[in-house]
Simulated assay, not measured.
Amino acid sequence: MDKIAVLIPCYNESKTIKKVITDFKRVLPNAVIYVYDNNSSDNTAEIAANAGAIVRHEYQQGKGNVIRRMFREIDAECYIMTDGDDTYPAEFAPQMVKNVLEKNADMVVGDRLSSTYFTENKRPFHNLGNSLVRKAINIIFKTSIKDIMTGYRAFSYQFVKSFPVLSKGFEIETEMSIHAVDKNMFVSNVVIEYRDRPEGSESKLNTYSDGAKVLMTIVKLFKSYRPMIFFGIIAFILAALSVAFFIPVVLEFTQTGLVSRFPTLIMCGFVIIAALLSFFSGTILQIIRQKDRQDFEMVLHEIEDRKTRKKEYDKEVR
């Protein structure tokens, strides 16, 4: 088991990967640096290997797929995840590692949005999207994570080995943030500087399509992690619509003793039934969620035992 593992997912980062590796080797000399190449068409993998990194490959395209592979294969007491585009300064890594190893943080977020991101990033829709996503998640999940979509993070062994990677692409960071909040893991924020990509280096993030995927991920995770609220809102809307259309029918009946709008009356009945079904669906799913959280705590105990056994085995081998 490594003490510190630096994880760098890469796709066509030949212009910057050598500098990223060199910088992290300088500030974390005892760390093991892993570069996972994701079907690059340039010589990213060769440059990374020559710079002293351990190079591995993930052949399913997408950042989420790469991180899934990394988390499965690498065992470490502390993980640093960064990008290969040299937008995240390595100088902040020691503080992030310290928060994990000494303060027992499960996830440390490299907060770009509180420093230079909005001035360095030249894509205004990215700025708007990051702000909207941060506000939406902090409101929905009642948290205070400063940067939801940053690619610069540190993790504990417990987080990495208990995190179920479902996303395939760039929405993975949003999934990580919500998972940490939902499972009551200790999340800390470290303000970092952000620098835009150097000239000639191109972003792999599509503002509109990847932004839409992130928003859909938030909705899906909201439904999965807060089912009572999600289905409760649907139930309230349906019930309100049913009552709104039912009132004129009742008023007419009280005045004339007749019901002339039977289709409206029947539809109101179906809509209120749908509202009740939504409410009870949320209630049942909330009970299941509570049981899942209890089971998750037991999984954390098993992961901690596994970590202890690995460390003891490494001592015996040495």
Results as ranks from 00 to 15, higher is better:
142 K>S: 07
240 A>E: 14
236 F>G: 06
223 K>N: 04
31 A>R: 05
66 V>N: 02
300 L>N: 08
170 F>L: 14
283 T>D: 12
300 L>I: 12
214 V>S: 01
243 V>A: 15
92 F>E: 00
214 V>N: 02
58 E>T: 13
36 Y>V: 11
197 R>N: 06
253 F>V: 11
123 R>I: 15
303 I>F: 11
74 I>Q: 10
277 L>Q: 06
192 I>S: 03
122 K>W: 03
77 E>V: 10
91 E>S: 13
308 T>R: 15
30 N>Q: 14
289 R>I: 04
28 L>E: 10
276 L>G: 13
172 I>Q: 02
92 F>D: 01
25 K>P: 06
197 R>S: 03
225 Y>Q: 07
20 V>C: 00
185 M>V: 02
196 D>Q: 09
132 L>D: 08
126 H>E: 12
143 T>Q: 08
4 I>A: 03
209 S>K: 06
175 E>I: 01
210 D>N: 06
278 S>Y: 11
97 V>I: 14
118 F>A: 07
221 L>C: 07
31 A>M: 06
173 E>D: 14
7 L>G: 08
266 I>L: 14
114 S>I: 09
119 T>D: 15
38 N>W: 07
54 I>A: 03
197 R>F: 04
243 V>H: 12
112 R>M: 12
266 I>H: 07
3 K>Y: 09
177 S>K: 01
245 F>W: 09
68 R>H: 08
262 F>P: 01
131 S>H: 01
217 T>P: 02
293 R>E: 03
229 I>Q: 10
195 R>A: 07
116 T>R: 11
102 E>G: 04
190 V>I: 06
88 Y>N: 14
284 I>N: 14
25 K>A: 10
20 V>K: 00
299 V>F: 09
161 K>R: 13
307 K>G: 05
258 L>W: 02
46 E>K: 03
160 V>C: 10
72 R>V: 01
22 T>G: 00
155 F>L: 12
302 E>I: 12
21 I>R: 06
311 K>A: 15
84 G>Q: 12
268 C>K: 05
256 T>R: 12
158 Q>V: 15
206 N>L: 02
238 L>V: 08
42 D>Q: 00
211 G>V: 02
316 E>A: 09
174 T>F: 08
47 I>D: 00
316 E>T: 07
236 F>V: 08
54 I>F: 04
178 I>S: 00
293 R>S: 03
244 A>D: 07
318 R>Y: 11
108 V>N: 11
46 E>N: 01
224 S>H: 09
81 M>L: 15
271 V>L: 09
86 D>C: 09
135 K>P: 03
214 V>T: 06
130 N>C: 15
136 A>N: 10
231 F>W: 08
43 N>H: 04
278 S>T: 10
204 K>E: 04
81 M>T: 06
251 L>Y: 10
246 F>S: 01
157 Y>L: 00
220 K>N: 15
286 Q>E: 15
294 Q>Y: 07
84 G>M: 12
264 T>H: 04
132 L>V: 15
298 M>I: 14
94 P>A: 02
265 L>R: 01
48 A>Q: 03
281 S>N: 11
227 P>D: 00
70 M>P: 04
156 S>P: 05
133 V>G: 02
268 C>G: 11
280 F>Q: 08
24 F>P: 04
111 D>G: 06
310 K>A: 15
301 H>A: 14
296 F>Q: 13
122 K>F: 05
173 E>M: 07
47 I>A: 00
73 E>S: 13
163 F>Q: 01
274 A>I: 08
34 Y>F: 14
160 V>A: 13
63 K>D: 09
282 G>F: 04
